[in-house]
Amino acid sequence: MPYATLDELKGRIDWELDEDELRIAQGALEDASDLAATYGRDWSEENAPRLVRTLVLKAAARYLRNPNGYTQSRAGDETLAWSDIGRDAGTVYLTREEIRLLEELGGRRRGLATADVVAWCSTRRPAAGYVPVDYGGAQLPLFADDRGPW
């Protein structure tokens, strides 16, 4: 189910949609909602943040205003030019900033993470043992030999 309604989309554009445009608009809302769920999370219609609906409406309206992805058009000599957005030209798409917002709303943060890597059936060697101290400073090492505690 789309995160926005057709009536909300009609409020975002400045012309009346005919029957074919209504069908295309409904498909654009569904495509934009699928993208929002992919980059964010699969929210239900009731608990989706308001910003998700806004981003879906922006992407669908962007597509309806320029379904072929033209950046230039001339009527005299029949000149057309396409955008450099690549494979997204002529499709419903989200900008990088919109994707970043959806990832943050969905709890997906980009960045580095670390993971312990351990060989199969291996055991960890004990590190040096430490003794707690009363004065609250750093702990004192009990042994420093990595072959055993004694």
Rank of each mutant, 00 (worst) to 15 (best):
L29H: 02
T54Q: 07
R53I: 01
G40M: 06
L51S: 14
R87Q: 08
D116I: 13
P2M: 01
P149A: 11
I13R: 00
E46G: 15
R12D: 01
A4H: 05
L57R: 01
G136L: 07
R62T: 09
R12M: 10
G129W: 05
R12I: 03
E16T: 14
W120L: 15
P141N: 05
L101N: 03
L9N: 09
R53V: 04
D84P: 03
V117M: 02
P132S: 09
R125Q: 08
R124P: 07
A75F: 12
L51N: 07
S44T: 12
Y3S: 06
S83P: 02
D146L: 14
W120G: 08
A75Y: 11
D20T: 13
D7W: 02
L142M: 10
Y3C: 04
A127K: 09
A61R: 01
V131D: 09
R53W: 01
D18G: 09
R23G: 04
R50K: 11
L112Q: 11
L64Y: 07
E16V: 08
L142H: 13
T95S: 13
K10F: 04
T71K: 07
Y39L: 07
L35S: 03
D84C: 06
E78L: 13
E46P: 12
D146I: 13
L80H: 12
E98S: 09
D77A: 13
R147G: 07
A4T: 04
K58W: 11
E30V: 14
T71L: 06
E19Y: 11
R100I: 09
P141S: 12
L102H: 00
E103N: 07
F143D: 10
V56C: 01
G90C: 00
E46I: 15
D84M: 08
D7Q: 12
C121W: 14
G11N: 11
L17H: 10
A25R: 06
C121G: 13
L22S: 14
T38R: 12
S83Q: 04
E78Q: 14
T38W: 11
